[in-house]
Design a protein around this nucleic acid. Structure first.
Lengths: 147, 147
DNA sequence: AAAGAATATTTTGATATTCAAAACAAAAAA
DNA sequence: TTTTTTGTTTTGAATATCAAAATATTCTTT
């Protein structure tokens, strides 16, 4: 490959990493005995991280329609990873919670992320971390403002 | 949220960016009049970037089974984005090529990537790019060696 | 050369993922 | 008390995915 600008290098690396990461995360879960798809794990993560986890708020976080989320949650409930509960004060709303089984899966997945981040910041000097953080924040706020 | 380590911040930003980017790319394509899914675009990209684009080599790059790729290519052929061709010298193999229509879509998508990378680089001094590049390379080689 | 093994692809059958639009239920507004 | 809005589920349809079976072709072995 010919002489490349930093921009072209960054683009290529981003694309490559992106295209790999989902299937690698999936593979990692399999190896650790988790029988869920990455998609299902992402739903669990979203439930965990959403403040008042109703169908609407979770779907918004995941950027899917509520109907899509319904089918995911149906399956996760059937498999014993989620529970539905009415929200008192508004009987239209449905609150979704995690079971202990789900929390264990998330712990396993988090460990993978830990190792991944260690790999990312490997060889970087501590004072350079802020540069990486700034880069990621730029990327993040670019999306936030633009979409 | 409480006091966070650089590691925790990097993790959170990475996750957030990752979870956003696919749906944002999808949205961007829609806005620009492309009626393909991101998945279909990724297949086109893989075809473009694979040296000898037969079903096997493309599937390997995409990390899907060849059967899966068959259905994707069937649809892309039906929609006029791909063409199948025999490989001379080995009649088992099938070469997949892009049509002009596909190349236009890829150009549109590439433009989005360009803007995205510009946004990342924005505010960073040029000499600091190596930090982002090094980080991405670390991540990349972590996956390469580990999987 | 004929038989058997290996390789490349497609087909089949099943499950998961997704959306838009319709149906329902409850709350809020008029 | 109607009407409208909000929150969720259901329905119907397209995509995405895999494993295993079926085909076709090439390579290997005898």
């Amino acid at each position: 490959m010919a002489d490349q600008s930093p921009k072209a290098i960054i683009n290529e690396l981003l694309v490559e990493v992106f295209n790999q990461i989902l299937s690698i995360e999936q593979q990692n879960l399999r190896e650790r005995g988790v029988e869920l798809s990455m998609n299902e794990v992402h739903v669990l993560e979203a439930i965990e991280k959403t403040d008042e986890p109703t169908m609407s708020t979770i779907a918004k976080r995941l950027r899917v329609t509520v109907g899509t989320l319904t089918t995911s949650v149906n399956r996760l409930v059937a498999k014993g990873y989620c529970e539905r509960d009415g929200v008192k004060g508004d009987r239209r709303k449905v609150s979704v919670g995690l079971t202990d089984k789900a929390r264990e899966v998330l712990k396993v997945h988090e460990q993978f992320h830990d190792e991944m981040i260690d790999a990312v910041i490997e060889d970087l000097h501590l004072e350079e971390n802020h540069v990486l953080i700034d880069s990621l924040e730029n990327l993040n706020s670019y999306f936030k403002t633009k979409y």
